[in-house]
Design a protein around this nucleic acid. Sequence first.
DNA 1: CTAAACGTTGACGCCGACGCGAAGGAAAGG
DNA 2: CCTTTCCTTCGCGTCGGCGTCAACGTTTAG
Lengths: 130, 130
Amino acid sequence: MRIGELAERAGVSTRTLRYYESRGLLPARRAVNGYRVYDEEDVCLVTQIRTLQEFGFGLDETRPFVECLQAGYPSGDSCPASLDGYRQKIAELDALIGQLQSVRDQVNTQLVRAEAELPGGPEPRCEMRG
Amino acid sequence: MRIGELAERAGVSTRTLRYYESRGLLPARRAVNGYRVYDEEDVCLVTQIRTLQEFGFGLDETRPFVECLQAGYPSGDSCPASLDGYRQKIAELDALIGQLQSVRDQVNTQLVRAEAELPGGPEPRCEMRG
DNA sequence: CTAAACGTTGACGCCGACGCGAAGGAAAGG
DNA sequence: CCTTTCCTTCGCGTCGGCGTCAACGTTTAG
């Protein structure tokens, strides 16, 4: 299988595949003419990467999963390092969600206050209410 | 007041102020020697921008607030357009938080499944379980 | 034989909000 | 006069994950 077929089967662009290779994920054998050659497992590998990307994983963060597959395990999350990757991402998401919730509440507070002040008079000019 | 003083009083870099000017926010009068000249209101203006930035507003999204202040209103959110800015940002935050919650749950599901499979046998090789 | 459809490497573009450095003018103090 | 500090504009670098040429070689179908 060459890069075009892999790209189509994995639902990504050839540019993406070459980029993955340049980043050290997805190594490729080469044919005599220099063309990259892939096998069935590489489809899984790329699919794994894509799924994690949708979960917000950066390419570097997919590495444990990729290495797990390359080591011959049945799925990318068959290794402890991958599970840690999941746990860390969950922690990051929780932290981020918490921050966003906090910001959301602050903005909402500002909105409510501003709505209450609108009908009122001129109010003090140029206040630092952050 | 020149750019250095404004920068210090507003807690930003001079580079940032020049950038704001280049983006059409924070216009500056010029002294005969070409130096930028600011007044007290500009401190409020920059402070307003900074606060919104902390809320995740892009520079363009701060424009209604800035124009509101420039129009002479007591605070950046004294105008209807600013309130709409708040509302839209809240909506964006809610949407984002919802997506992140969804992703978090999906990752957690994967984690639980993978943890359950780890102790088990070899399992099918190279599955597309996303 | 030729054109189309693949493949290769290399390198610039994008987005946002600046950081950072160059090369120079201007003001203030000793 | 000299030094320091401030100011000016210009323009590249950053980060991630590619998109999009360019310029060229290979394979395949007609």
